[in-house]
Amino acid sequence: MSQTTAVPAGTDPRPRVVVRGDDAVVAGVRCTECGHPVAFVRPRCPACRGPVEPAEFGPAGTAWSSTVVRIPVPGREPPYALAYLDLDDGPRVLAHLPGDRAVPVGTRLRLTAPDEAGDLTAEEA
């Protein structure tokens, strides 16, 4: 499992997650011109440079790929599983998965509340 990774307040570069009941969603932005979804709060659309407005994405999505990290990484204890998760009508995000198994490409996943390390997490839907 992951351990807490300390970063100064306000500097955490990871997507912000909002938990509402059983649903966890990513609070990012969407371009008002081209519709491009972004998992982060950005000042303008990184795809077309148009204006953006706040938007939420998830909780459901599909695994684009997945792996299990089995080497030491500072602040973390291996093994831990990861997936690139394409949120439905939303951006691709990196999420931690429970256990130590990579999920098949195309697996339906659902965002869950962030873990104590502050990482995005997901589980099989």
Partner: peptide, 15 residues
């Protein structure tokens, strides 16, 4: 963002 989330470079290529 993905570095802090623990995506070491071997994991990126593993994906």
């Amino acid at each position: 963002a993905e570095g802090l989330a623990g995506l070491a470079l071997p994991a990126l290529y593993a994906m």
